[in-house]
């Protein structure tokens, strides 16, 4: 009986390990596709949708250079971005080999069948605690990523692909995150009118935020100066 139990545990462990390796292989394939891009400059429009922020839609320029340089600049004007998250992109999520990739089943994202892969970093110094990737196995694309970090909370990134699908570069990125409650002391705002009472639904809505970037054009692998990221 004891021998049978040990055999069963060993069998499950081998199966589990094999399965985990399979996902690493998939992630590595996705990574290899992403690795075609050494650098890019993308142009697009950015919309910040946070209940307590009234901001206009603005033109943005996004700069990326391997391994993990990323910069988002508003074309004229001030950009308001949630701390930490927006600068995370797919290349940085799967950068290096310091992770364990585990399968977590299948899901459908925007009508596309996707493999759900949990990425667990194996190094202690990583800010990311856990990432869940939804990978389109056929096209080797990350459709969605949910990430939990030590310092910057949890966020989700959802991507739609179009013209630049062959480089795994999305046309649209929606970045969702949690926000802290916003309240400005009246004395500091120097506003003394009555506050508008918020309903419970509005209070919940105020705790969620979204940043949507629609990319109109990418300039890929033309070389990029490091000074851009300073």
């Amino acid at each position: 009986m004891k021998r049978l139990l040990i055999t069963a545990v060993a069998f499950v462990s081998i199966q589990f390990s094999a399965f985990s390796q399979d996902m690493t292989a998939l992630v590595n394939k996705v990574k290899a596709k992403l690795d075609q891009v050494n650098d890019y400059v993308a142009e697009g429009s950015m919309k910040t949708d946070v209940a307590f922020i009234k901001a206009p839609v603005g033109r943005v320029k996004v700069y990326f250079k391997k391994p993990n340089h990323f910069k988002l600049k508003r074309d004229g004007g001030i950009s308001i971005l949630p701390k930490g998250g927006v600068t995370v992109n797919m290349s940085t999520l799967v950068a290096g080999n310091d992770f364990v990739a585990l399968s977590s089943g299948d899901a459908v994202i925007n009508g596309i069948k996707a493999k759900v892969v949990k990425l667990i970093p194996t190094t202690d110094n990583s800010d990311v605690v856990l990432s869940t990737l939804y990978i389109d196995e056929t096209n080797l694309l990350i459709l969605k990523a949910a990430t939990t970090t030590k310092e910057n909370g949890s966020f989700e990134i959802e991507m739609s692909y179009g013209k630049f699908i062959s480089y795994s570069l999305p046309d649209k990125v929606i970045f969702s995150f949690n926000t802290k409650d916003y309240k400005m002391p009246k004395g500091v705002a120097l506003e003394f009118e009555d506050e508008e009472k918020l309903t419970d639904a509005e209070k919940i809505k105020r705790k969620k935020g979204r940043v949507q970037i629609n990319y109109s054009n990418y300039t890929i692998n033309k070389g990029l100066d490091d000074n851009v990221f300073k």
Partner: peptide, 19 residues
């Protein structure tokens, strides 16, 4: 000059520089 970001009691407003 640049965009104008001001804080109201319940929300934050960003006005584009041209507005």
């Amino acid at each position: 000059v640049d965009d104008m970001v001001i804080q109201k009691t319940n929300y934050l407003v960003q006005l584009p520089v041209g507005d």
